[in-house]
Design a protein around this nucleic acid. Sequence first.
DNA 1: CACATTTGACCTAC
DNA 2: GTAGGTCAAATGTG
Length: 358
Amino acid sequence: MENVWSWEQKPLIGELIQGMELVKQLRVQFSTTSSSPETVETLLQRILASYEKALMILRCSGSIGQPQIEGVMAGVPGSPISVNGSLGTDEFDKGIKDHQGTDDISKKRRILPRWTDHVRVRSETGLEGPHEDGYSWRKYGQKDILGAKYPRSYYRCTFRNSQNCWATKQLQRSDDDPNAFDITYRGRHTCSHATNSVPAPPSPEKQEQKQYNNNNHNEQERPLDILRDIPSSLRIVTEDLDRREMTYPFSFPSTSFGCMQSEDNGFSLSALDSNALLDSFSSPFLSPATPESNYFAVSPLGKSNFGGVHNEHHFESELKKIIPANASAPSSPVLDLDSLHPVDIEPNFPFDSQPFFS
DNA sequence: CACATTTGACCTAC
DNA sequence: GTAGGTCAAATGTG
């Protein structure tokens, strides 16, 4: 894989910047009492379109030379958005091998197609669960992990038996930040209970959260409520697995803000955390130099995943071009828009098509 | 009673 | 042999 970050980066950056600017406008709209619902709706649509376009750019370019597991990826209604379904090569190979040996798999360990999402979701408040991803999970195990402060929890889809849905996820609290959760998804939902746009019934995350904090405010927010509560922020760290090559660093929410997921590619964001996503747009959007809240942090691993080893420096320098070194003040301009190029949105760009607005 | 969680045991990969 | 992942009986909850 090479030149993953060199393709179309200007349009991509432009899309991201545009989306951020729109969010900033939206925030202004919310701050003024006279904003009309139409204005807000329009801005939301533009924001989403911008990010979907960016996603499309990533999708089109990143698929080049990437292994695909289309047979498994395709046609799973309601499953998290598959940006390209790529795997690290060994992961991919293992998944294939595993599938080939299905008949020999013991009951004790059923081997899933082993593509994974590795996600870090952080709740600044610590009150919200790590995320709500629209699926219903059932905890089936917990394990102390060597070198980790906190045990790892294992979840499977509630509908494993009823609908033969073998999706699982692992949830682990970060050692260095107890408010952060590393989530690893395995397998793909084949159940029909995914609700990407509507908050799901109480999930294991929320139930687990009760163990950590009893002050959980359990109301599920509607999208606009989420927007209104932007200040409760969340950090999303794209922290990819070292075995995976660069696929896509970003995926942005589809229409409802209900669920944003990027399987195999970097991060996912759930309904209840979307507020923080928006907050993250409002100021230091991308700032590796500010490891605190309110931003999309790009970890060293994440950087490498933006373009592999060859492009890491390129990416970093590109970031430096567009992001002021010290852009921590929420009201300060984040980007030099003059340095950016306008983005041409293709007239026939399928914004309204699945899976973008599903 | 049905379903979810807990937790020790078991299995597999390395 | 060890660590990670899963199973399943016991237990909890509504």
